[in-house]
Write a protein that binds this DNA or RNA. Structure first.
Lengths: 218, 218
DNA sequence: CCTCAACGACCAGCACCCGCACAGTGCGTT
DNA sequence: AACGCACTGTGCGGGTGCTGGTCGTTGAGG
């Protein structure tokens, strides 16, 4: 397991590093965001333990960079501020996990290991495609900058289609992913919902139909 | 996003479910481990929110089952006991995240979303051969870079021929692979479909006839 | 009590599927 | 060389399944 520790408090950083090394991880340490970005560009880390309050380049920016660059690296945010709003914001930015200082060392290790087990990294928290911006955490959709109000189901359908990354998604799959198990298999809600979704998203069309296969967003 | 909530305290379980539904997630609820295992076997959840202290089948066992079965489903452990040892143990068992009760609801949502943000596992392979590019997931066909619109049947036939990797495929085999089981064995749809396919794909010919054996793409 | 999302029922248009009929082609037999 | 047969290519027309779209009802939440 390859880990990068980014923490400006050198004493803490080194302590964490030695602790992780004792747990058989390969650990690099840097003390500011700039150095972090450098190392990330060069090396291929499994997990980055990232202090949020960094001098020069803020931890949030480092996190955004990692997530946005599509690397397989996972981010564990670390911060002094421990209230809920902070934690939620950290996760919203795109971190894979979040731990508040002071933390118990075994928990840090356990969370790093849990992240290391995940085969694939998180996608960017904001989905963008074909002039549509979807922010799941805010439950907000923008079409060419203008906000579009959607009902929960419409939003769920749009989210599934956006995550499909251009692939066609059948009505059955949409029903499977956006509805719970009580859904009637012979319903036509999906078609109706797709229609209202199309109407709200306006011109030019965003959701295309692929005859015989379902719907897709190019 | 498809979520299963497993929590024996029904009031809490339902509250969580409605909260998540308001956030556009498709939520199923069960109140014990047995039912959880059942649902997991049937449905394909993105995330399972799992109370650790369950009657009958313990949450840990459910978690182990999910991890062991190799599903892409992520587990978020939930528990009343909030000390570090518990959290570490939960993560060690194979949970992807861990949240101690009482928790703030926005944080639960943020963590579920973080878990659900995983990338689609495998990029579907694109079939390429003889100047033809077929992308099954997008239902898209390109001939020398130009897009060719195909009907579902035409697409199905082309896909079978492409996957045959140059080998000849008989009409009977095509009928078997691209049509459902109640197809008339004495039909000539295959011939007709191959014809329209050829016409749409244009010159030079892509689908060749192997007299007595069927069709093939060199 | 009011609003709106969710959803079933229904209709219309159209592309598509496919049966049918016939033409063209290649090969073996006489 | 002529013929017949088996196989293949192609035009045509009808039925129908798929999709877009509307409307009215229901039910939950404010």
């Amino acid at each position: 397991m390859r880990v990068l520790v980014v923490e400006d408090e050198q004493v803490l950083a080194d302590a964490v590093a030695t602790g992780l090394r004792r747990d058989s991880m390969a650990v690099d340490v840097v003390y500011d965001g700039d150095a972090a970005l450098e190392r990330i560009a060069v090396n291929d880390y499994d997990v980055v333990v990232l202090d949020r309050d960094l001098p020069l380049v803020h931890g949030d920016d480092v996190c955004r960079h990692i997530v946005h660059s599509g690397l397989a690296t996972r981010v564990l945010m670390l911060t002094a501020a421990g209230d809920v709003a902070d934690r939620v914001e950290g996760l919203t930015i795109g971190a894979d996990d979040y731990l508040a200082k002071p933390f118990a060392f075994p928990e840090l290790i356990a969370r790093i290991r849990a992240l290391g087990r995940r085969a694939v990294p998180a996608l960017p928290p904001v989905l963008e495609r074909a002039g549509i911006r979807v922010d799941p955490s805010r439950r907000e959709v923008l079409r060419d900058g203008r906000q579009v109000p959607l009902s929960p189901k419409e939003f769920a359908v749009l989210e599934v289609l956006m995550r499909a990354d251009g692939a066609a998604v059948s009505s059955e799959q949409l029903l499977e992913k956006a509805w719970d198990e009580n859904a009637d298999p012979f319903t036509n809600v999906v078609r109706v919902t797709v229609m209202t979704l199309r109407r709200k998203l306006g011109e030019p069309p965003v959701v295309l139909t692929v005859p015989g296969a379902g719907y897709r967003i190019p």
